[in-house]
Amino acid sequence: MRYVVEVHLKPEVSDPEGAAILQAARALGFDFLSDVRVGKSFEIEVKEGTEEKELEVLSDKLLVNPVVETFRIRRDDD
């Protein structure tokens, strides 16, 4: 079983990397973009029967810095 934890900067924290990518993409002629935010994701293989709750605790304690980041957990069924 596999979960994906996606981590992003909180909306109130500015994301200069996203802004730079937006600018570069527009310079290359991709004018359909209105915003870019950069995040990261963790692909986590877990033992059968692991509950999403446990992943939340892991994210809070280790994967995420709650001062500046938020996260979302989803099951990856592929």
Binding site: L9, V13, S14, P16, E17, A20, N65, V67, V68
Partner: peptide, 17 residues
């Protein structure tokens, strides 16, 4: 110190990248 909670706030990537 920030990660350990001894001081408040966070240090993130430089604005100039």
């Amino acid at each position: 110190l920030l990660e350990a909670g001894l001081l408040p706030g966070a240090l993130i990537r430089n604005a100039g990248l």
